[in-house]
Structures are given as C-alpha cells and as structure tokens.
Design a protein around this nucleic acid. Sequence first.
RNA 1: GCUGGCGUAGCUCAGUAGGUAGAGCAGCUGACUUGUAAUCAGCAGGUCGGGGGUUCGAUUCCCUUCGCCAGCUCCA
Length: 608
Amino acid sequence: MCEECDKSQDGQEQLHRLRHSLAHIMAEAVLELRPNAKLAFGPPVEFGFYYDFDFGGEPLGEADLPEIEKRMELILRKNAPFERGEMPLAEALAWFEERGETYKAEYARELVETGKAGGGSLSFYTSGGFTDMCEGPHLERTGQVPRGCFKLDRISGSYWRGDEKRPMLTRIYALAFASKDELKDYIARRKLAMERDHRKLGDELDLFIQDADVGVGFPLWMPNGTVLRDELEKWAKEEEFLAGFQRVTTPSVARGALYLRSGHLPYYKDSMFPPMLVDENDEYYLRPMNCPHHHKVYAARPRSYRELPLRLAEYGNDFRYEKHGSLSGLLRVRAMTMNDAHIYCTPEQVEEEFHSVIQMYQKYYAHLRLGNFRVRLSLHDPDSDKFVADHEAWDQSETAVRQVLHNLGVAYEEERGEAAFYGPKVDIQIKNLMGREETVSTCQLDFVMAERFDLTYADRDGQRKRPYILHRAPLSTHERMISFLIEFYGGAFPTWMAPVQVRLVPVSADFAPYAAELQERLCGDFFRVETDDSEESFNKKIRNAVTRKIPNVWVVGAKEQEDRTVTWRRYCVKEQVTVAFDKAFDALKDMRAARAMDNFADTALPLG
RNA sequence: GCUGGCGUAGCUCAGUAGGUAGAGCAGCUGACUUGUAAUCAGCAGGUCGGGGGUUCGAUUCCCUUCGCCAGCUCCA
C-alpha cells in the first residue's frame, strides 16, 4: 500500500512512518465522530496521506475537518505507543465481523489467499483505543508526531478498490511533512503554482475560452492561443518534412463500418460520440482518432516494399466523448487536434523507425525544455480481455520496443495493462501543476490493423506481406501540449511562439511616427508586433506589457528616434540595452529562425 | 458517470438573520502628454447561473437543472 514512498532513504522512511501513523490517528478521530463508519484503505501518498471511509447515511463534509483535526491533536497528546499484534485469519474475520468492517474483512481474506500475509496471519497495530489491520511500519509513540506538521486538506470520493461498479467511499486527504515549516513551505509553493494554472493564464492572456452553448470540453481558441497552435504546427511540419513524412488530409467523420473494421466500435464505443443516423441504417461517427483514415489512404493503392517506410502525417481533428467529470481545461477535452502520423513499414524496419520517432520526441522535449516527464513502456496484460489475443505477436513487439529504449539509453518504467489494444506503446507521462499525470506523447507499435484493413505490400520476392504500423504523436494534441507549456512557462512564451512578439512603446505621442515606421518594417517580415498608442502613462504602458508577458518591449523616445535605435526591455530581465534598430531586427530574426528559448535565463539576453 | 464543494458586473471579491445589490480593476468619456510595474475625475455596467416551489415578498429557504473546482473511474 505504500509504493509511493521510497523506503531506501532514512528520511523517506521516517516520513513514511509519520504519514502512516497519522492516517491511523485520523481514522481514530473520525470514528469518534462517526462510530458506525467503515474503514477501507488509508495509505501514505506523495504529500501526506488519505483514508477512505464508508459513512453510510451520515456523510462528512469539509466543514467537519477542523473538528477532526482538533480531535487528532488531543489523541496525539496522549502519547500512546503503536503496538504490533497478529491474528490468524479466522480470528481476524470474526473481529472484523463484530465491528462491521466488511472492507477490511475482504482485504484480509485476499491477503491470505494470495499469500501476501506471512504465515497466514495478519498484522495489526494498536495505538490508544484504535486498532487497524496494517502492515506498518509506524512511529513508536503518537507523541513523536511534530506539532503542526499536518493539515487535513480536502474531501473527495473514491471507489472501493478503484472499481466504479463497487461502493463509492469518502476519502479524506491530508498533507503531512516532517515539520511545521515544511508543511507551510509546501502550502506556499502550491499556492504559487496555482498562479500558473493554464486555465487561469488562458483566460488572463486571452488564449482560449469555453462556452456552455458550444459545449463542455470544446475549447474556442482565441487569436493569441491560435498563434501558439500555429507555431507548434509549423515547427512539426518542418520536422516531419525533414524526416520524410508526407501530409494527408482526411475528414473528421466516417461511417460506422470503418470503426467496426478497426475494432474501435466494440472496444471504445463508450468514448465515442453517439452516431448520426443518415438515411436508413447508415450511421456516421465523429472520429475518435485518425488511424483508420490513414489506413484507407495506404490501402487505396497497391504498395511496394520500395515505398516503405510510408509515413503519413496529419494534424487531425478528433472527438472523444470523455466523461463529464474528467474534463479539465485544455488538459482533457472532447475535441482535439492531434500531431498524428502513421508509419507503414516492413518488419525489418520497425526498430529503426521506432528509434527515429523516439529521437524526434527527444528533440522536441529537449528544445522545449520539458524535463519533468517519465517514460512509460506500456505493455499488455495477458489476464485482460482488453487486448488482442496473440501471445507471440505481443512478445515480439514488446521485445522490439524495449530494445529500442535500451539502445537509446532511455530511462523508463514498464507497466502492464497500459498498452493499446493493438500493440505496445511508449508513453511520455507529465504531471501538471495539480499533480495530475497525463500521457502527452505516445508512440505505438501496431501488429493488428494491417490485418484488419487487409494492408499489404509486394515484397522483393513478389510475395504480398503485412506491414507493421507505428502510430505516433510526439507533440500530443495541441490542447494537451499547450496546457503543459502554459503552466511550465508560466505563460511567458519564447519569442518564436509568443502571440505578440514585440510591443513598441513610444514614450509620448510625439514618437508615434517612429514607432509606426518600425512596426511596418517588422510586420513586413511577418513579426507579430503592436504599438501601445494608448493615452496611458508611460509607467502604465510598461506595466501592461509586462502583465501580458510580452517577451520583447521596445521603448522609443527622443534619443532612440534621433539615433534610430530602440531600448530593448526583455520580459522579467532587469538589464536593458539600447541598440540600433537594424541590429535589434536582425537579432529578432535570428531568435525566430533558431526558435530560441529566450524565455529561459540562459538565452534571455540575445545581445549579450 | 460517481462523491464532495462552489456559482453575485468582463475579472477579483464584499453584502443581504427574506424587503430586488456595492467596491477595486477592466470598459467608455474628459482632463493630463508622461523614460521603465497602476495619473485624476465622471459615466456606464448585474432578471445575484437557469427553471420550479414556499412566502405578501426570494439573490438569501427548499427542490431541480446547467456550469465550474477537487478526487475517483477513464484516457492523447
């Protein structure tokens, strides 16, 4: 239950004990308020701990948290020891039955049946008047809990054993750290992080909106946000061109027959919008992904091995009926645009193609300076019916993908049951500000669809053979990628992406003509420039430019006009420099051409 | 979809123990013409998320619905 904690380090070990112990204390306090509540699980987690309860008909609200905290303090003051005990299964079950602890009883049975409970007996910890089945470890005494080191955070729901068909429990989350100061630090950092929430910044910087009449999960991209999409897309198209991809354009709607053939209808119907009935018995669907369309492009002509690898790319619009409660800003939407491509290749080409794709995402991530991700090798689960049954193919393809990661020296974690139904994949997982982890990029090896779509190529020996298919989306969807970029950059984009690349600020109206001349030069070279010709005070103009997080502010006044210079004020950089306009213009062009990440300190001052 | 919480002006928030609401910022108008993060004044802006109920009267109480937030489930 405690995988989240790294037990190898002493401090972590102690923190783990602390959180684990506090979970017991909290349960004891909660039981004082709700004696009939049933206990479920109460493990330590990344920033504290939680405990799940079934309150039956007498739920608890956030208003009750202070009372629980107060009772916890009283319990801690008693300085009771944590004492370990053991019970054989039968005795434990009787003990649970007496107390109506059905969840604990279920888990006890499972522990013994699966052999996880050593010697068939179960360990219990008692502190004061509270006893809980628990593996431990714990502190020695409740008095070892530092004063003020924890805080009950929030209440939410969770399913028993994570299964939506089983009872919904009430989860109380608490923050807990080794000291009061560390707790305060964490709370302060979390508050600061919230300032970078992409939904908040998206609104403040006019990047995107959502409208109830349009529908939830259907973001409307404002002009500023559309610049971000367009710049990413432009970059991707260049990279894909250089990597030998060809672009295709396919519709966002298709007949049901297409998804029956692909297998998406039986597998993913719940995640698709319901069909539109056109004529009799002719159903059309909004597409949840582009793959089947691309397969049809492949299938449209007889293919030769000479054409392979055939790489078809499209920034495709897709629609998924995500559950209402899982929608969140741009992070999880129902309409998205994906940096998609499918690579059709021979078995011999699989590793090299996969290798190149992973290198492409490494290039993107390094350039964008996204470092806070983990690589997941998503494997199938032989015990699940979610995956196509072909053990040999799974074996081969998983081995091939693992080999690619190994050859590239990529650090990764393997996870069972996370594969696509048609093959293994490599996923790039990023956590957002709230700690919610989502897949951004993915690269999948597909050994199924070529068969389903009867895709073939004529090989050197004249035989018709099945290609392998790689599905890849290194830049994810615009929606998800940009949500992470907004938060990671705090809304301060590098010049090449920035919605407004330069704002000209004349010191007074007298210098408007000079500013206009500069603006015309810059716009003529396709720079996104605007001049602040408002009648605000100069200070206010500077403030406005800064709060809009515009990367380059060029101030022009009397001396600039006379010397044909600009005073270049970079976003959040104190030093500024007055340079000849031509020189500044050239520097700007260089930054754009290199897609310089001038929103980072090391490249913040292009002129040294 | 489920559990809990929250919806007052474009934004951030105040307020009403039931008697139809107020500030700052943003916007508009005017004055000021400014050298590095908020010049001053005036004006305008809200069926207090929507619908129903209780009441002489509802933004306030009740029901319902929509939206938002956190978590669970699910997923790019």
